[in-house]
Design a protein around this nucleic acid. Structure first.
Lengths: 255, 255
DNA sequence: AAGTGGTCTAGACCACGTT
DNA sequence: ACGTGGTCTAGACCACTTT
């Protein structure tokens, strides 16, 4: 009884008619993502236990488990044995390493020092609008910041955020906090960066960048163009960074 | 009966005494990796069915399934519904994209044209020995090759392989095949690249590299240092590449 | 002791591909 | 029709954390 019934009642909610059926655990997974997107459970908080979710959705614990397993594999959730399952947050060293991929040639990774150089509201250019899935001319927040390691300027980032999602963002607010930018945006604006796509190129430092990074003009720098996405796969950040890679390198692993 | 007994008899095989116990499915996983490493099943072949593996190891199908699931998530195996589970091979477009991360600024990715410039046997320098976990002076194969896209030279790779694993590797052999290098090494020498770690930096092209890539000396190029590993996490390739990134970029995704 | 996630089992049925 | 992996269930027990 339970299986066919549960699938029917759950998938009926989508009401697309001819759409392909997805397995129960995937429907559960989608419901969980929706809850995360709505902010039903905030980053750092525990979500309901597997047994409770199983009761709520009228499925077996094993089915909930499979849905949660996948979300944990995608780093949206973190399981802690004996304690519960928690919403991932950028307020953790573990997560920071996933999004800041610089490591020193020698020694242990040190925390970055962030310095906000500028923060203003502008209108989206065609390029920025395309990346953020906005319309040209839509309001965006433009941030320029400098990251330093052990006092050495290493990264200049030009960051663009959709204006509607980040109202009231100012230089003072940004400088008033410490720690990763994503952690700040998460707690202050309820937007969680979950995934990102990057394009890397080697370019010559222009006058602008080279002076900020205190290197000679035309020195090779690593240009990193990133688009970050939140839960529903909506792009919420465009970031163009210039990295000095003489003392630090960009690490990547593939498997 | 079965659970405690099976765990005991399986983990007893490791015979480390005070070592931490690992769950059954992990022991199964390790056994499967050993079989892959020994070449019991070659890349492209099917491994035994879940039910047969369950009988062989005297565990339930669900336990085998969990072990296989993890190996599929790590791309060592590929599941095909209705057909079986297969050993991953570099003779597939899917796998190539995982290890060659260049994409064109515009248009669809095109296959690379490979040209072997050199292949000789040398003695490992201290740096190479460290990367490949050899001793300084051990024999290594040194390969230099040029990758082109649509006729445009784009990547120069200096590749170093442990000499003992790749006996009889020559320029003619390398030029006699078409397709990815890893596919060739897999079929000809039985060594499968499974995972890799990379360090990326922006550098100036030296005279050597710039002439091969037909760019001006001191043009910024992306330097990619890669160490590739085979099943048992043994390093089997050191590769130092220089990428021209004006028409192509290095793509990366994080989540 | 109670609650959480982690592991393991056994059995049922579905979806896919081949014979 | 048969064999494969894919999904779902139900129940047992273990390991860890907190009360």
């Amino acid at each position: 009884m339970s299986e066919a019934f549960a699938r029917k009642s759950l998938s009926a909610a989508s009401a697309t008619g001819a759409a392909a059926f997805s397995p129960l655990y995937r429907q559960i997974k989608d419901l969980l993502v929706q809850s995360l997107d709505r902010g039903d459970w905030k980053p750092g908080e525990a979500i309901p236990s597997e047994t409770e979710l199983a009761q709520r959705f009228q499925v077996s614990q094993g089915t909930v488990r499979k849905a949660v397993d996948e979300l944990a594999a995608e780093n949206l959730l973190i399981r802690r044995q004996g304690k519960g399952t928690f919403v991932s947050t950028h307020h953790e060293a573990r997560v920071r390493f996933r999004f800041l991929r610089l490591a020193p040639n020698q020694g242990e990774p040190q925390p970055a020092e962030s310095q906000i150089l500028d923060c203003k509201r502008v209108r989206a250019s065609a390029e920025i609008a395309r990346a953020l899935e906005l319309k040209t001319g839509d309001p965006v927040v433009a941030i320029r910041r400098l990251l330093s390691f052990a006092g050495l300027p290493t990264v200049v980032d030009d960051i663009f955020l959709p204006g509607v999602l980040f109202k009231g963002l100012t230089v003072d607010l940004l400088n008033g906090h410490s720690g990763p930018l994503y952690a700040f945006l998460e707690t202050e604006f309820g937007i969680s960066m979950v995934r990102a796509e990057e394009k890397l190129r080697a370019v010559s430092a222009n006058a602008d960048v080279s002076s900020l990074l205190r290197i000679l003009k035309d020195t090779p720098v690593l240009k990193v163009d990133r688009i970050s996405y939140t839960y529903a796969d909506r792009p919420v950040e465009l970031r163009m960074g210039h990295y000095v890679t003489d003392r630090y390198y960009y690490r990547n692993s593939m498997n």
